[in-house]
Design a protein around this nucleic acid. Structure first.
Length: 240
DNA sequence: GCGACAG
DNA sequence: ATCTTGTCGC
């Protein structure tokens, strides 16, 4: 389902930051959820050699967590990675993958921060605003904020709040016992409590929630389409 | 001014 | 993100 373009993506760092300040005004942190029957996960892989970016989206049924749809979308890399401006590098490609979905997800889990961002608009939040779908930021490492590392239990399910400027911007969640925690924050149209709840409910015993884990796998598994410099001969099958 | 810094 | 083998622990 194509969305009406909110803005231009090709911006200079200074312009991008100004846009983030503007967009952050419209973020909604209350739950605006329909009955959750489908959860999508998105992720991206980069191949510098081919100057190519590939986004993957995997739609799963909930709560069964069975794969319903998987899609990938490739395009040239458009920006270098700049901390705080990740969405301007990855979001357009992710949206390309997203537009191939036939079913509209009820929640989208994104690899990266939601509001746990210096300007409260990480890639998960930005995507939520663009798609107008509830999003959750699921990052593997910290961008902004502090937390009580001692207070975080080592058992799966335990968590502590992530604080930045006296404000709770997310949670540090142990998604798997004795494994490094995930940094969870609401993206848009969802609360922190609900975000944590769904991340844990989508756990399959791995560090990453299943939708994001599947998207991560899909973005990397396929071989990068190598430009054939030699005529491709016919491959004989090894077995009759 | 000096670090920190999603993917 | 990507590079990159073996290795420690449940």
């Amino acid at each position: 389902m194509p969305r009406p373009p909110l803005h231009n993506w090709n911006l200079k760092p200074e312009e991008a930051i100004a846009l983030q300040h503007e967009l952050a005004q419209h973020v909604v942190l209350e739950d605006h959820l329909a009955e959750v029957h489908h959860v999508a996960g998105v992720d991206m892989a980069i191949n510098e050699e081919h100057n190519a970016a590939r986004a993957a989206v995997v739609l799963m049924s909930y709560p069964e967590l069975e794969i319903v749809e998987r899609h990938v979308y490739e395009e040239p890399i458009r920006m270098p990675y700049v901390p705080g401006l990740l969405s301007f590098r990855e979001a357009p490609c992710v949206i390309g993958a997203f537009e191939q979905l036939r079913q509209r997800p009820d929640i989208v889990m994104v690899d990266g921060q939601g509001i746990a961002h210096p300007r409260r608009i990480g890639i998960a939040t930005h995507l939520g605003l663009w798609l107008e779908i509830p999003t959750i930021g699921c990052a593997k490492s910290l961008l902004t904020g502090k937390y009580d590392k001692e207070a975080l239990g080592e058992e799966a399910g335990s968590w502590v709040p992530l604080i930045h400027r006296k404000e709770t911007i997310g949670a540090v969640v142990r998604t798997r016992t004795k494994v490094n925690p995930m940094f969870i924050s609401p993206g848009h149209l969802i609360s922190l409590e609900t975000s944590i709840r769904y991340v844990l409910a989508c756990g399959k015993g791995y560090r990453l929630p299943e939708p994001t884990r599947q998207a991560d796998k899909l973005s990397k598994d396929n071989a990068w389409t190598e430009p054939p410099d030699e005529p491709q001969g016919q491959q004989m099958s090894l077995w009759p």
